[in-house]
Design a protein around this nucleic acid. Structure first.
Length: 422
RNA sequence: GCGGGUGUAGCGUAGUGGUUAACGCGUCUGGUUGUGGCCCAGAAGACCGUGGGUUCAAAUCCCACCACUCGCCCCA
């Protein structure tokens, strides 16, 4: 493995693609601030226990196979964050945010790591925009994070977006529902594939988002969780829908939308977009009122979402959305080496100090003017400043516009003003 | 972990058994002495993914492996 090659599942973000990231992160931060969220940054490495507890000891499947874990010292391991929510909650508890004005609304943008086979828009290192409201049970908080996500994709120019909405209940009502679902599925074992039979054992809710053929019909008649919610969850869901309706925000109740982890409660939602392969979801979120206790802290409600930047980029490219190209210098300083090079370097930094984006022609010794002009042309330079010996004798530079205009001799002391008035 | 597709210069491709592997784009240089785009010329750049095998002869046929990619599993 000595090849010069990036590690499996990793991506280089080159300038051409980076401009999508710039636009996304810029819009995300702008919206987050508009909604009253504050940015924080969390460590990439956390003690492994945080994720073990957060996700549940039973889910050791991914703990062993899909997390990057390294040994810190004897018996102590650190894990590269596979997600953000547990880290948010840890930071909330550890920094005493329960004594801040409630609720606490936070967002962050950064990388997360999962050791899985890659698919379209799904990599081992991926970046997420995450928003969380901690310490609030009001369904209006759910609406805030949902609409923040939706507004982001709208402002980026997406069309054909849909909200997928469901409730996953709570420890009061979920177990009974899971039992009802299991019973129903048990009565139709003959219509299930091997994969779904295994899912019944491991996590019956997962049968709901099975991609096996024929499941649409079978699941349509299965018990749906929203018909089996406890009073509290029912009220929360009703309130949430009422608020969305009041906002004229459309959504699809999707009874097959599930979260496999126990700390999720009540609201679960996704935003779907086209053009990102088999994974339609461009964002996933929900309420996690049980998480704080799971990781060993005081009961703290929370709701939020995470959105994969790579998937958004993919969707934008698919939709033909063009982010702006970052501004580059429009002035190039050319020279002939020796004393003219020194003068050219001085002029270049003088222009930059005056706020004029400037590119300096590099040349170890001397370089043909043709070559320097070609360089200017390739970089969409509008004006070339030629620093030659004859010009220097007059304390001037030749100002050569590339749009076909005449070149003129300008005093060194007047160059900045000349360029600014142009 | 399972399955499909693909691997020839930086990028996109041609070449399907026979001399120094081709073309386009890109890069660099030049087309007289200090001036871009277009055009012209030249140069650099590929152990044809890797390793075996078949053959007088392999980029080309066979096998294995690796990588990339898409999907399944899983999805915090």
């Amino acid at each position: 493995m000595t090849a010069i090659q990036r590690a499996k599942g990793m991506q280089d973000v080159l300038p051409e693609e980076r401009r999508y990231w710039d636009l996304i992160t810029e819009k995300a931060a702008e919206l987050a601030h508009l909604f009253g969220f504050q940015r924080i940054d969390l460590p990439i490495l956390e003690y492994t226990e945080l994720y073990q507890r957060g996700v549940g000891e039973g889910s050791d499947f991914f703990v062993q196979k899909e997390m990057y874990t390294l040994e810190e010292s004897e018996g102590v391991t650190l894990t590269m964050r596979p997600e953000f929510t547990a880290g948010f909650m840890r930071a909330y508890i550890q920094n005493g945010m329960s004594s801040w004005p409630q609720p606490v609304k936070l967002y962050t943008i950064g990388p997360a790591f999962r050791r899985e086979r890659q698919q379209a828009g799904r990599y081992r290192q991926h970046s997420q925009f995450n928003c969380e409201i901690l310490g609030e049970v009001d369904p209006a908080a759910d609406v805030e994070v949902m609409l923040l996500a939706m507004n982001l994709y709208r402002s980026l120019g997406f069309s054909g977006l849909t909200f997928q909405l469901n409730s996953t209940g709570c420890p009061v009502c979920k177990p009974a529902y899971v039992q009802k679902l299991t019973n129903y599925l048990a009565q139709h074992l003959d219509k299930l594939g091997d994969l779904d039979k295994e899912r019944i054992q491991r996590n019956p809710l997962r049968v709901l988002d099975s991609k096996e053929p024929g499941m649409d019909v079978l699941l349509a008649d299965a018990p749906h969780i929203i018909d089996h919610l406890c009073d509290d969850c029912e009220a929360h869901f009703t309130d949430l829908r009422g608020l969305l309706d009041a906002l004229d925000q459309s959504y699809s109740i999707n009874f097959r939308l599930v979260r496999g982890i126990d700390y999720y409660t009540k609201t679960v939602f996704e935003v779907w977009a086209e053009g990102i392969g088999a994974q339609a979801a461009v964002c996933g979120g929900g309420r996690y009122d049980g998480l704080a206790e799971d990781i060993g802290g005081p009961s703290t409600p929370g709701v939020g979402f995470g959105s994969g930047i790579e998937r958004i980029v993919l969707g934008m490219q698919e939709a033909g959305i063009e982010p702006p190209v970052p501004t580059q210098p429009t002035v190039l300083v050319a020279h002939f080496g020796g004393a003219t090079k020194e003068a050219a370097v001085q002029l270049t930094f003088q222009l930059r100090a005056a706020g004029i984006g400037t590119r300096l022609a590099f040349a170890r010794d001397k370089r043909s003017m043709k070559s320097q002009m070609r360089e200017a042309n390739k970089h969409d330079i509008q004006t070339v400043l030629i620093v030659g010996e004859s010009e220097l004798e007059q304390a001037s530079v030749m100002v050569r516009p590339l749009d076909g205009g005449e070149q003129t001799l300008v005093k060194l002391t007047d160059v900045v003003a000349w360029l600014k008035n142009k």
